[in-house]
């Protein structure tokens, strides 16, 4: 089957391409500047969009590519602009969408997909005749082929929604999705000064520091690219240490793939303890120094 794969994040585009290996002829599309992350994905052809992207001109460009290449299935990475683009393709292009898929299989002209529902409390498995798949990041590991796919640049059309300017967000410079060990903090840390202690533990276990939604988005104790959760990064480290994280279901959905989970929380009934291998009930400011001492001795 002929596919068209798009993400404004080259890494997610590469992941989708790696996932759709057997029996697919992939055309990949991304934004200028992201092509390096997905050039060795084994795609048959590759388009790089130039100019200011909006959901409007991206959906127009993808519709054009889909028609020109008689594409059967369209895959779009689930990012803010990706979801809007997919919505437009479904709303005015007649494509049948299914969103946030974490797996997809095809047989007899039908797609069987899985996605989280109720904020991650359940996994919904469905069969449909969808032909537009919005794919959650982390559907597979991006793999590298030997050959680079040849790039065709494609200028984006004028958009009725104008980009008048843009500002880059500050970033932590890490990719926590690839981290082997993560020390993650929640509201229970109480104050940003507590990060010092967290970093001591992170250094003892050679891990990256990550956090829950409030810590990253409301309090800005950590940069946004360190947020773990359904609306943030989905991580699968060997070891995930949750400090002062209550374990809201949306957070669990972002770290469920971790191999071993250690939780420290003073509330015995915190839901994180249902989702951990080892739990220590108590004040993290008392426990973490002792744990660091035990680890470094």
């Amino acid at each position: 089957m002929k596919t068209l794969i798009f993400s404004d994040d080259g890494e997610i585009a590469a992941q989708m391409c790696a996932y759709l290996k057997e029996g697919f002829e992939n055309t990949i599309a991304t934004l200028k500047g992201e092509e390096g992350k997905c050039r060795r994905s084994g795609a048959r052809s590759m388009f790089v969009f130039t100019g200011q992207p909006t959901a409007s001109n991206l959906s127009g460009a993808l519709r054009k590519l889909k028609d020109q290449n008689s594409v059967d299935l369209v895959f779009i990475g689930s990012t803010a602009i990706g979801r809007d683009t997919a919505g437009l393709l479904a709303g005015s292009g007649g494509l049948k969408p299914i969103s946030e898929v974490t797996s997809v299989q095809f047989s007899n002209g039908k797609a069987t997909t899985a996605r989280f529902l109720y904020g991650g409390k359940s996994v919904l498995t469905e069969e449909s005749d969808s032909n537009l798949f919005v794919v959650a990041s982390g559907i597979s590991e991006a793999s590298q082929t030997e050959n680079e796919t040849e790039i065709t640049e494609m200028p984006l059309d004028h958009s009725p929604v104008t980009v008048e300017g843009e500002e880059q967000k500050s970033k932590g410079g890490v990719d926590i999705e690839k981290a082997k060990v993560i020390v993650s903090i929640g509201r229970g840390l109480g104050k940003p000064e507590g990060l010092k202690l967290v970093e001591q533990l992170a250094s003892a276990v050679k891990g990256e520091v990550a956090g829950s939604r409030p810590v990253c988005l409301d309090y800005h104790w950590l940069s946004e690219d360190r947020q773990v959760g359904l609306s943030g990064k989905k991580v699968k480290p060997r070891l995930y240490i949750a400090l002062g994280i209550s374990g809201q279901i949306q957070h669990i959905a972002g770290m469920r793939g971790s191999r071993t989970v250690v939780a420290i929380n003073k509330d015995k009934s915190a839901p994180i303890f249902e989702e951990c291998d080892y739990g220590l009930v108590g004040d993290l400011y008392t426990i973490v120094p002792k744990l660091v001492a035990a680890l470094t001795s």
Partner: peptide
Amino acid sequence: NQSADTYTGLLPGIISG
């Protein structure tokens, strides 16, 4: 932009279209 139960995030785009 994305509802807390399903996270689909497609509705604004579909309505726009």
